[in-house]
């Protein structure tokens, strides 16, 4: 039996955070909000099962990231990728460093971007990312390393640390 109050509490407590994580993936506030609403709608659709998972938020995030990738691919197919995913939108009041990071994230592959977001923003370990994305631990490490290296030329402020050899596993275990 689906309990709307339980869902509402879950939604209100996690949606802003998940939206910010999806924004880092897609770089567009409107798209991020649409994707997250769709992901939570699906969560309610299956809430009797999703609510029993250890981390419903991880489930929603996984769905949202898949929708994001799907949306991105459809946009490519429609030759509208540049309009939707080209120049980064302005984000009033945001830290310029953060805007620059999100813009740079859009320049690396979706797989690398997802690994970087899950590791550095969500705070998952390499093993947890491997479980959530369904790939091997070594693949996650490779995506993290290559993703950071790919970001370095676009983020001169952090180029030195992004280029450091395998710094990414040092503080997450």
């Amino acid at each position: 039996m689906r309990d709307p109050r339980d869902f509402d509490s879950f939604y209100l407590g996690t949606a802003p955070r998940v939206t910010s994580q999806v924004y880092a993936m897609v770089g567009n506030r409107a798209d991020a909000e649409d994707i997250v609403q769709e992901a939570y709608a699906r969560a309610w659709q299956y809430w009797d099962k999703v609510s029993g998972y250890d981390s419903p938020e991880a489930w929603v995030r996984t769905i949202a990231f898949r929708i994001a990738v799907s949306t991105w691919r459809k946009a490519i197919n429609r030759f509208t990728a540049h309009r939707r995913h080209g120049a980064p939108e302005s984000l009033p009041g945001a830290d310029p460093n953060y805007v620059a990071i999100v813009a740079a994230l859009r320049l690396i592959t979706p797989e690398q971007r997802r690994a970087v977001v899950l590791f550095h923003l969500v705070g998952l370990s390499v093993a947890e990312i491997a479980a959530e994305t369904g790939v091997a631990v070594g693949t996650v490490r490779a995506r993290l390393t290559r993703g950071r290296q790919a970001l370095a030329p676009h983020l001169s402020e952090y180029a030195a640390e992004l280029s450091a050899p395998e710094p990414e596993v040092a503080h997450h275990g």
């Binding site: 924004y23 945001a94 830290d95 460093n97 953060y98 805007v99 550095h120 983020l155 952090y158 640390e161």
Partner: peptide, 14 residues
């Protein structure tokens, strides 16, 4: 590292 701190701080504000 500073990259991660900037990413998290910006995301939290978002």
């Amino acid at each position: 590292d500073r990259f991660e701190q900037a990413l998290r701080a910006g995301s939290a504000r978002f």
